[in-house]
């Protein structure tokens, strides 16, 4: 037996042994199901809003989270107006009643805090970033496009002469400022031969539509400015019944 054959056989044995080890049922106890996160009881607003306003420092969040339930037991504290007419004894009994849930609530907050801390540590970056990148899309949605279309259609008063020219199409480029006001209108295609007069009237009606008070400003999501700062609109009376 050559040396090469020996090492090959050894390697194969090791591999088979490993497969056997991995494939065998373990005697470990079944994993304890994770405690459900106490999402219902957590004032989400505190988590989502505060990091945006302040620096997303781990220690600051911790302090805030610790301080919030102590100062404002939002969920369990009865409203002051209702608490005022209650007799002292009853008020005490109420506070006694709510002591335990308050502790539980604090425990939930601690859990959430740990979870948040762990997440932040795992990703190694501030919490705020994860919110922005995951939840906010910079694409214009279909419903936003449809709203814009509806608005422009409402402003376009189709001249009857244009209505008769079903195949007429006018392509218009518009430049908008950050507040969705139209800054510049440019007609991108030329008049078809023998239709110059109707084309001229159509262009005029489109310019009027885009400058109409009902279309100033245009209804577009202002936070997605880069996506609509330049738009191409193709006007045609084709869809009018």
């Amino acid at each position: 037996m050559s040396q090469w054959s020996f090492f090959s056989s050894l390697l194969l044995h090791v591999v088979v042994g490993l497969l056997f080890f991995v494939g065998m049922p373990t005697s470990k106890p079944a994993p304890v199901p994770l405690r459900p996160l106490p999402v219902k009881l957590v004032p989400i607003g505190v988590l989502t809003q505060s990091p945006k306003k302040t620096a997303p420092q781990k220690t600051k969040i911790k302090k805030q989270l610790e301080s919030v339930p102590k100062k404002k037991p939002i969920i369990l504290t009865p409203p002051k107006e209702k608490a005022a007419p209650l007799p002292e004894k009853k008020a005490k009994s109420v506070s006694d009643q709510i002591k335990e849930p308050q502790k539980k609530q604090q425990d939930h907050f601690q859990d959430v805090l740990k979870t948040v801390e762990n997440l932040a540590e795992e990703k190694g970056k501030p919490i705020k970033d994860s919110f922005d990148s995951d939840l906010i899309s910079d694409k214009i949605s279909l419903s936003e496009l449809d709203a814009l279309r509806q608005q422009i259609q409402g402003c376009w008063l189709v001249p009857p002469g244009v209505l008769a020219e079903r195949n007429l199409m006018i392509e218009v480029g518009i430049h908008l400022d950050a507040q969705a006001h139209i800054q510049k209108i440019k007609i991108l295609n030329g008049a078809p031969s023998q239709k110059a007069a109707v084309f001229k009237v159509a262009v005029q009606s489109i310019r009027q539509a885009l400058k109409a008070p009902e279309c100033t400003p245009l209804r577009v999501p202002l936070d997605k400015y880069p996506k609509w700062k330049y738009c191409v609109l193709r006007f045609s009376p084709r869809g009018i019944g």
């Binding site: 214009i140 279309r149 409402g154 376009w156 008063l157 577009v220 045609s236 869809g239």
Partner: peptide, 17 residues
Amino acid sequence: GWCGVSLDIQQGTMKPF
């Protein structure tokens, strides 16, 4: 990058001028 929005407007209003 520039043509972020491209829309077909195939309807309008028929109100008098």
